[in-house]
């Protein structure tokens, strides 16, 4: 389980560095070409990993896959365009904090609506995390 927690923290590194690099690339290439390169090489990486780590693709009933499951990809299109815009205009710490506040808002909503989770310990912990965010953003630069 500790490995899972470290992986989650590593995701934080990836989601901070990736849009900053895309933002810098977009200043040179433009947002459309940058986004295309991002998705193209991500697809290639995904296919390589799929071949190496998940070669057996059987038992999947594609008729059961509703169109709603592709919403992730569609939403991702808007996200990358927005990120390419704001990541070169605000500090790295704001790139980390502000989307997090939005994610937390929606995360609480989704956890309750979809899984019925309303764990008070989780809420208390998240309030303390928010307090930490407030303290660290109040420091002078």
């Amino acid at each position: 389980m500790v490995l899972i927690y470290f992986l989650a923290i590593f995701i934080g590194f990836l989601v901070t560095v990736t849009p900053i690099m895309n933002g810098r690339n977009s200043l040179v290439l433009g947002t459309i070409k940058t986004s295309f390169y991002h998705y193209f090489f991500a697809s290639v990486t995904g296919m390589i990993l799929m071949i190496l780590l998940s070669p057996m693709v059987t038992g999947i009933e594609f008729d059961d896959i509703s169109l709603k499951y592709f919403m992730g990809g569609i939403l991702g299109l808007s996200i990358i365009v927005m990120m390419n815009y704001y990541t070169v205009r605000i500090k790295a710490i704001h790139i980390a904090i502000l989307p997090f506040l939005g994610q937390m808002t929606m995360g609480f909503f989704l956890d309750y609506l979809l899984f019925g989770n309303l764990d008070l310990k989780t809420i208390l912990g998240m309030v303390v995390v928010l307090l930490g965010l407030f303290i660290q953003s109040s420091g002078k630069n």
């Binding site: 995904g46 990993l49 799929m50 780590l53 998940s54 693709v57 999947i60 059961d64 896959i65 709603k68 499951y69 592709f70 919403m71 992730g72 990809g73 939403l75 991702g76 808007s78 996200i79 927005m82 990120m83 815009y85 704001y86 605000i90 704001h94 790139i95 502000l98 989307p99 997090f100 506040l101 939005g102 994610q103 937390m104 808002t105 929606m106 995360g107 989704l110 979809l114």
Partner: peptide
Amino acid sequence: LAYFTGLILSLMIYFNGQLSLVTTTYI
């Protein structure tokens, strides 16, 4: 815009997670 992106990001992660449950994470 950064805050709004976070709202959308959570939804995106949810839908991608759902797709991975009916297929595989790699697909």
